[in-house]
């Protein structure tokens, strides 16, 4: 009886031991494959640290993006201002086409008397008179008059901006049309003078004329800007 119960209990107990051994064996093998608890904890700590770092950097990115945006905005404004300034400067220099109300003056050589022809001084006088009357832009036969423009006789042609032009001369000026017209047609003025000479003069006001910009390069071989 005791022998039998001993055998049975030893068998049961060894079976339990076997189960425990096997489970422990499998657990250990699983542990070797996987990560230990310490390592896992370490990695969790690392992860949370990296996550907080990540959040911090995200915030930094936002901040820097905001700053960059501001800087860009400032830059855009500055660029716009500079471009605006450039546009104004180009307009002042006569490099851009302009449009507006103005006057058209056409001078032509008289057909009847071949001895009389239009001299460069006439054109200069007209230009001068128009400038005096507040013309903001003047062109002669499509050549814009700018600071360096010349109007001079060269053989049988008149050179304007180093370009040969021939009669008839079409002079366009933007400004107050009435003022420009009256400055030329004032009694004893240029129109009267030209008519006396026998030159055909026609003046006409327009509500809108377009004067082309100076289309050649502005060269400064000798002049240099003075600083300050």
């Amino acid at each position: 009886m005791t022998k039998k119960s001993m055998n049975i209990s030893i068998a049961i107990i060894t079976m339990i031991l076997g189960v425990m051994l096997a489970i422990q064996f499998r657990t250990n093998r699983y542990l070797e494959q996987g990560v230990t608890a310490d390592r896992a904890q370490e990695m969790v700590a690392e992860l949370s640290r990296l996550e907080s770092d990540n959040r911090k950097f995200d915030k930094e990115i936002d901040d820097l993006t905001y700053k960059l945006e501001q800087a860009r905005k400032g830059q855009t404004q500055a660029r716009d201002a500079i471009l605006d300034e450039l546009k104004k400067a180009k307009m002042s220099a006569g490099l851009t086409s302009v449009t507006g109300p103005g006057i058209e003056v056409v001078l032509d050589n008289p057909d009847s008397s071949p001895g009389i022809f239009i001299r460069d001084e006439y054109l200069l006088k007209i230009a001068n008179e128009l400038k005096g009357a507040g013309a903001e832009a003047i062109s002669v036969n499509g050549q814009r008059l700018i600071a360096t423009s010349e109007i001079r006789l060269a053989g049988s042609f008149i050179n304007i901006n180093l370009d040969r032009t021939e009669p008839p001369f079409q002079i366009l000026a933007i400004g107050n049309p009435e003022k420009l017209k009256s400055s030329l047609e004032i009694s004893g003025g240029l129109v009267d003078y030209f008519k006396e000479l026998g030159i055909a003069v026609k003046t006409q006001t327009h509500s809108s004329i377009t004067i082309p910009g100076y289309n050649k390069d502005l060269r400064y071989d000798y002049a240099k800007a003075v600083k300050g």
Binding site: I10, T14, G18, V19, L21, I23, Y30, L31, G34
Partner: peptide
């Protein structure tokens, strides 16, 4: 009997779908 019990237990343990938490 002890050896048999042990073998049975090991076979059982190896086939149980369960491991001890780390």
């Amino acid at each position: 009997l002890a050896a048999l019990g042990l073998a049975l237990g090991i076979a059982l343990g190896l086939n149980l779908p369960f491991t001890v938490p780390q």
